[in-house]
Nucleic acid binder design. Structure first.
Length: 684
RNA sequence: GGCCCGAUAGCUCAACUGGAUAGAGCAUCAGCCUUCUAAGCUGACGGUUCGGGGUUCGAGUCCCUGUCGGGUCACCA
């Protein structure tokens, strides 16, 4: 028999599911003489009476009876033998169970008795979660926001599942990207600093990165003009058509831009739209050599024609010089690198503080890439990797269905993969107790991490199989993909500020400020603005690509963070009044038999699955599960709030129940929202 | 081109991993403030779950196939 006892004030199954499963199992064994390995238990559809439904189709094999009869047999058994089930109904093969109200009151009592409801006990395990990990050449943008909110939230969800969590990031402080900003600053900066310009450090460095890009494009344009004057591009076209007698046209297209087309009949100079081609070349210059590696006919001719431009001195070659000097530890270069990175860290610090994310330890690429290189050399000695004639070191993953991958360049310098190897190893040395590592990185790097984990395994690290790439989809704008080159990125600082202002505007319009002090109001606007933003980004399954519509993200009604915040504030308002009336309810007060309203039962039912959802969210690495849950809970509470009076209730037992239910739901909402990094207000 | 991922209401997203008549929000329309905060609640409207096959008591979910998106295949990070 199930171990449920209705009068117990001690701990019993808060998860009614468990005791029902046990009961169904026993019913099947008693009725059909055979054990049942799995039981399909699901929430009952709203249109039928009951809270739990047993799917009885799988049982028909044991019972050798029709689904409906089988369901009735089990239902009768449960009503007679399991103390929890008061009645049932059968629809097709679905057995809908109705629990007695007493059970629900006991469920609430158990929740009230547990001050940590929603927080699972310590399980002794430790994991590391990496997120953020920006480059240091420009400010954070919308994509980083999804990353940071996700990583931080998954960390909190794991904490709530009883894990010790180490939040880390790797800062890509080294490489050609920061050298680009440095080169532009050195050429055109005129000693500008965050202090002298009043600009946030990361934005200032980003400004020079943008300046680098535009300057570089300008120089390339001029060089291409010069090249065309030496040898008109049309001559290449002539060669192309001579060498490809069957070709009717030459097409050069690039990522959805209008393609450059030359028709065979139009090969004379006056028909070649030089300006169109020039525009494409300037834009795609950095990618040309890669495009040429493809099989496109005529591309190599184009490349040959461009080659002299590649060797000209530009701002880009100056950046490359700086990278070389940096690796040789040239004092001036290292000093400039430190200064500019310092500006960026100050700026990032402010942004992180406003976002409300934090880290337990920071890793810097400049500290880990050498370890990675040593590790690769060790692998080379052991024959795990191999060296090509030009001196570059490679790993062969063809046996695993992947390709060959370069690990060290022919000049011995490190690539991205190299430093990731070093970083991973360093982290397991720093935190020997961690059982695994989670990398919060966009899904465009899935291949990279597949390769990384394979390499770590080959190097003999058994923890490699406990590394997990938390891969999330890109954030699109209504106008399409964000492209820094085209200036369509949404800046993180700007966005947070806009959300704040929108929250203020809407709050004032609704006249919600009343007697609030200036400070309290500011805190509220920040809570609402940031809450709306975080909820908007976290409510979608991380794996999926999502659309960021600014108009929709500032909505404060419906399936939004502020909706949940508002529900919390409403409950707190009631609880304040209850307190001032001297109404405090403890678990021991919830011992009377009362008849529940449907809305009470439904809200409590949602409240009762909180911990199941917390577990599920960790298993799936999905804050969206918590966001959806918080919304469901708030919605159920609002229905209850709307249909059942709380404080005016004259029956003392009902009043206590409603206050306890309200308080427990407020607490659960607060905890759930905290897992998303969202604070909830007392008033709004 | 190879590999990976996706396609659900006009729009943005759910659907407890194979279960009932596929659900929410936004938008549109109609109601509810002398009961505790109307940033709320209640209705209505809205679907060939991309097309076509298959597997079984049962498919949005699994398999095959086609179409359309996206990502990735760098001595970039």
């Amino acid at each position: 028999m199930p171990t449920y006892s209705s009068g117990s004030t001690g701990i019993f199954f808060m998860n009614v599911d468990q005791s029902l499963r046990t009961a169904v199992k026993q019913a099947a064994e008693a009725l059909f003489g055979q054990p049942l390995e799995t039981i399909q238990l699901q929430p009952t559809n709203a249109e039928f009476e009951g809270s739990h439904t047993v799917v009885c189709f799988p049982l028909t094999k044991l019972s050798r009876k029709g689904p409906e009869e089988t369901a009735r047999l089990v239902g009768d058994y449960l009503v007679q033998h399991a103390g929890i089930v008061s009645k049932y109904n059968v629809v097709k093969g679905f057995l809908n169970l109705v629990l007695s109200d007493q059970v629900w009151v006991d469920v609430l009592r158990a929740i009230v008795a547990n001050p940590h409801y929603g927080q699972l006990p310590d399980n002794g395990q430790e994991i590391m979660i990496e997120y953020s990990s920006p480059n240091t050449n420009k400010p954070l943008h919308l994509g980083h926001l999804r990353n940071n909110f996700l990583g931080w939230s998954v960390s909190e969800i794991y904490k709530n599942n009883g894990y010790t969590v180490r939040k880390v990031q790797i800062i890509n402080d080294r490489g050609i990207h920061i050298c680009k900003s440095m080169a532009a600053w050195k050429l055109y900066g005129d000693g500008e600093t965050p202090q002298s310009s009043g600009m946030k450090g990361d934005h200032l460095v980003g400004k020079y990165y943008v300046l680098f890009e535009s300057q570089f494009r300008k120089e390339i344009g001029e060089l291409i003009d010069k090249r065309n004057a030496e040898q008109p591009f049309i001559e290449v076209m002539s060669i192309f058509f001579r060498e490809n007698p069957t070709a009717t046209n030459f097409v050069f297209d690039y990522e959805g831009d209008a393609p450059f087309v030359v028709e065979r009949s139009n090969t004379s100079v006056q028909y070649v739209e030089w300006e169109a081609l020039r525009k494409i070349l300037v834009k795609t210059f950095d990618d040309i050599s890669r495009l040429v590696q493809g099989k496109k006919k005529g591309a190599s001719l184009m490349y040959e024609w461009l080659k002299p431009v590649l060797s000209e001195e530009t701002i880009f070659t100056k950046a490359q010089d700086m990278l070389r000097k940096w690796e040789q530890k040239d004092p001036d270069t290292v000093a400039l690198w430190q200064t500019m990175n310092g500006w960026v860290y100050d700026g990032f610090g402010a942004t992180y503080a406003r976002m409300g994310v934090d880290f337990d330890k920071l890793y810097y690429e400049s500290d880990t890439y050498l370890l990675g290189r040593d590790e690769v050399l060790r692998g080379l000695e052991k024959g795990i990797f191999f060296k090509k004639e030009d001196g570059s070191v490679w790993v062969d993953l063809t046996a695993d269905g992947l390709d060959q991958k370069v690990l060290l360049r022919s000049d011995g310098t490190s690539v991205y993969m190299t430093q990731d190897i070093g970083t991973a190893i360093l982290r397991f040395r720093d935190f020997p107790k961690i059982t695994g590592q989670v990398y919060t990185v966009g899904n465009e790097q899935e291949y990279h991490f597949k390769v990384l984990f394979l390499i770590l395994g080959k190097l003999g690290y058994d923890w490699a199989k406990r590394c997990f790439h938390l891969s999330y989809g890109m954030v699109d704008l209504p106008t399409g993909k964000m492209k820094s080159r085209e200036g369509t990125v949404v800046d993180a600082d700007d966005l947070m500020q806009e959300m704040y202002e929108e929250a203020e505007k809407q709050t004032r319009e609704l006249g919600k400020l009343e007697d609030m002090s200036g400070e309290e109001a500011k805190r509220l606007f920040n809570m609402i603005g940031l809450g709306a933003l975080k909820f908007f980004l976290l409510k979608v399954d991380p794996k999926k690509r999502m659309l960021f519509d600014p108009q929709e993200s500032i909505q404060l009604q419906g399936f939004t963070g502020p909706f949940v915040q508002y529900t919390h504030a409403r409950i707190r308002s009631i609880l304040r009044k209850a307190d001032s009336m001297g109404l405090r309810v403890s678990a021991a007060d919830l011992n009377s038999v009362i008849a529940l309203e449907p809305a009470e039962r439904e809200a409590l039912q949602v409240l009762s699955i909180f911990e199941t959802k917390v577990q599920e969210a960790a298993r799936e690495y999905a804050p969206s599960i918590i966001a959806n849950y918080a919304y469901d809970l708030a919605k159920e509470y609002n229905k209850f709030y709307q249909s059942v009076p709380i404080l005016p209730e004259t029956d003392a037992n009902k009043l206590k129940f409603r206050i306890a239910l309200s308080r427990s739901i407020a607490d659960a909402i607060k905890r759930a929202m905290y897992m998303l990094g969202i604070d909830v207000p007392e008033r709004m």
